[in-house]
């Protein structure tokens, strides 16, 4: 401790003062406090604090920007969903309409072809009835002929002589009328 003289050890062996109250050291302390504190103040005020402030502000800005971007994307997604749902609903409606149209058209076609078929069948029925009636008439005519022949044959067997054609025919027509 040759060069490091303790400032509290006053020369001459006086009573050593309590170091914090030793006025001899005040000058050096004040000078160095002023130097270091001013350097600290200037460094903080001019360099450090603006830099840290800018970092924090930048971060806040980028967070805000990201949040806004997220909000924008979310609203876009919402719009896309809404558009998709609308398209889906439209498609469903159109499908319904097409199906209904189709059904109505097919029903009309079926009705038309059914009517045509019915008409054709009715016509055939009428024709068939006509031919049945003609056949029946012919058959009836034949019946009187056969009956007349049978009656003339029966009379010939019973009486031994053939009756007149005219009398037989009249008798048969008479009998058929009954």
């Amino acid at each position: 401790m040759a060069t490091n003289t303790a400032r509290t050890e006053a020369p001459g062996g006086h009573k050593v003062p309590f170091p914090p109250f030793n006025a001899q050291t005040f000058g050096s302390q004040l000078v160095w406090l002023a130097i270091t504190f001013v350097i600290l103040y200037v460094t903080m005020a001019k360099l450090a604090l603006p830099r840290v402030g800018a970092i924090i502000e930048n971060r806040q800005k980028s967070i805000d920007g990201d949040l806004a971007e997220a909000q924008r994307l979310k609203s876009e997604a919402d719009a896309a969903i809404a558009a998709y749902e609308k398209a889906l609903a439209d498609a469903r409606n159109r499908a319904q309409v097409i199906a209904n149209e189709m059904r109505a058209k097919q029903a009309a076609e079926a009705e038309a072809s059914r009517k045509k078929l019915e008409q054709a069948l009715n016509a055939k029925l009428v024709e068939a009835e006509k031919s049945i009636a003609a056949t029946k008439q012919a058959a009836m005519a034949n019946v009187s002929g056969i009956a007349a022949e049978a009656a003339s044959a029966i009379v010939e067997r019973l009486l031994g002589s053939a009756p007149g054609d005219k009398a037989v025919t009249e008798a048969v027509a008479d009998a058929l009328k009954r």
């Binding site: 050291t25 000058g27 050096s28 000078v31 270091t36 504190f37 600290l40 450090a48």
Partner: peptide, 19 residues
């Protein structure tokens, strides 16, 4: 008498650490 003391050294260290 103005000297670079232990007190001054620690002030310099403190300011250096903060910086």
């Amino acid at each position: 008498e103005i000297a670079f003391t232990n007190s001054a050294a620690f002030m310099v260290v403190a300011v250096g650490s903060i910086a």
